[in-house]
Amino acid sequence: MKFFLLCVCVWMVSVHNSQGQQTKDDTLYYQTFPSKLVGRYYLSRKFSGMGLEKGGERLWYMPNSTLNTGFGLTYQNLTLNLAYGFGFINPERGRGETNYLDLQAHAYPKNWVIDLFGQFYNGYFLSGDNLQLADGEDRLFPDMKLRKVGASVQYLFNGDKFSYRAAFLQNEWQQRSAGSFLAGMEVYGGQVRNQYGILPTSLAREFDLRQVKFMEWSPTIGYAYSLVVKKHFFLTLSAASGFSVGRTSLHDATGAEERNWAVRPNYFLRGFTGYNSDRWSVNVNYVYNQVNLAPVAGHRIHVGTGNYRFNLIYRFAPGPKLAKKLDWIDRTKKKLFGR
C-alpha cells in the first residue's frame, strides 16, 4: 500500500509537468524531447545509514544494500525502472544481511524539485577500518531497524534556463551553462531501534541506547548550476540547506526516556556529470540527504540517505503503433489539468 500510494503521487507530479511549447530562452539553454522514448541501462545503489558521536567515538552504521543493475524507460516525465541485485556483483564481505525497502522519488517539474523518502531497513554493520572496539565486540547489528519518511519541496526560480531533468531523467539536453536559486521546505520523521542495543557494549555502560525517535521541519534555500563544455559535456552541482526545528527522544533498556528540542542544520546535495547529445547520454549521479537530529545526553546523531547511479542512455522515436498507445498520457494530462 505504501508503495502504491507513493507511485500514485509520483505519477500525478509527472503528468502535471507538461512538455509543451518552449520559450525562446528554453531553446537557447536546453532542448526537450517530448515525443521520444528514453531507454537506459543503469547500475544503482541506495542506502540509509546512521552516524552517532558519543564520548569522542564516531560510529557509522551502514546497511548491506545491494548494487543493482537493470533497465528503464522514460516517456516525457513518466519513468519506469526495473533492477535487481545479482549475486555476482555483490560478493560477501562480512557485512551481514540487510532486508530493506527503499522508496526514493526525485521528481523535477519545470520549476519545482520534489523529493519523497520512505526507508525501511533491517540489519546494519559498523563501518570504518579505524573503529576501536573492545575484544569480542561484533560489528554486526542484525536486529537493528531504521525507519525514515519525509519530503522536500523546493521552487526552482530559473526553470526556463536550468534543467534538472537533463541531468537526472535525461529527457532533456542542457546545451548552455545556467544556474538557479532554490527555496522551499522539508519535513522528516522516523526512528532507529534495536532490542539488543544500538551501541557497542563498551559505549553502553552509562546509557544503554535501544531506540531513537525524531521529527524535524525546516525551510530550505539553495543553489544549482550546470557547467556545459562544448555543448555536450556537463557538470551539474546542487546544494540546499536549512536550519531545522526538531525533537529527538532516546530510550534505554529500562524504558527511560531522554529528549531534547534543538535547531540543527540539514543539507541536501546532488551531483551529476557526463556526456549528453540528441541521441546518447552517459552520466553518473549522486544524491545525498542528511538529517541532523537534536543532540540528547551527549549523543549527536544524524541520518544519511543516498543514491548513486551510472546511466547509459539512448533516445529513440516510438513506432506508429506504440506512439498511438502512448497517446493516453497526453489525453490524461488534458483531462486532469486542461493542457
Results as ranks from 00 to 15, higher is better:
332 T>W: 06
51 G>N: 11
331 R>I: 06
199 L>E: 04
57 E>D: 10
89 I>P: 01
194 N>E: 08
321 K>I: 08
128 G>F: 14
114 I>L: 15
98 T>L: 07
235 L>D: 02
304 G>N: 06
246 G>P: 07
304 G>M: 05
324 K>E: 12
215 M>V: 13
209 L>P: 04
11 W>E: 10
7 C>N: 08
32 T>P: 00
304 G>R: 12
230 K>C: 02
82 L>Y: 13
313 I>E: 02
330 D>T: 11
160 D>L: 02
27 T>I: 13
204 A>I: 11
79 T>F: 03
264 R>S: 10
242 G>I: 15
146 L>M: 12
54 K>A: 06
287 V>Q: 05
17 N>K: 01
143 D>T: 11
8 V>A: 12
115 D>F: 10
311 N>G: 05
47 F>N: 11
291 V>D: 11
17 N>V: 01
180 S>D: 01
123 G>A: 06
140 L>F: 13
28 L>C: 02
170 Q>K: 10
324 K>T: 11
267 Y>N: 04
209 L>M: 10
334 K>A: 08
17 N>G: 14
209 L>A: 06
262 A>S: 14
16 H>N: 13
256 A>V: 08
252 D>K: 03
43 L>W: 05
41 Y>W: 03
93 R>K: 07
171 N>C: 09
63 P>W: 06
338 G>Q: 14
179 G>T: 08
220 T>S: 11
293 L>T: 14
199 L>A: 12
308 Y>H: 15
116 L>D: 07
79 T>Y: 06
7 C>F: 04
70 G>Y: 12
217 W>C: 09
29 Y>R: 00
58 R>P: 00
271 G>F: 05
30 Y>N: 00
204 A>S: 15
124 Y>G: 07
86 F>A: 13
280 W>Q: 08
20 G>A: 09
300 R>T: 14
295 P>R: 04
29 Y>Q: 00
338 G>A: 14
142 P>L: 07
137 E>T: 10
102 D>Q: 10
268 F>L: 09
77 N>T: 07
316 F>S: 08
174 Q>Y: 00
188 Y>A: 08
173 W>Y: 15
227 L>Q: 05
209 L>C: 08
305 T>N: 13
26 D>H: 04
102 D>A: 14
158 N>G: 12
267 Y>C: 03
300 R>F: 07
11 W>G: 15
14 S>V: 14
333 K>D: 06
213 K>G: 04
34 P>V: 09
178 A>C: 03
263 V>C: 11
56 G>D: 09
174 Q>H: 00
271 G>A: 15
190 G>F: 07
65 S>D: 08
103 L>P: 01
191 Q>R: 11
230 K>E: 06
300 R>V: 11
187 V>Y: 14
75 Y>K: 12
313 I>G: 07
217 W>L: 15
197 G>C: 07
125 F>T: 09
173 W>C: 00
139 R>P: 08
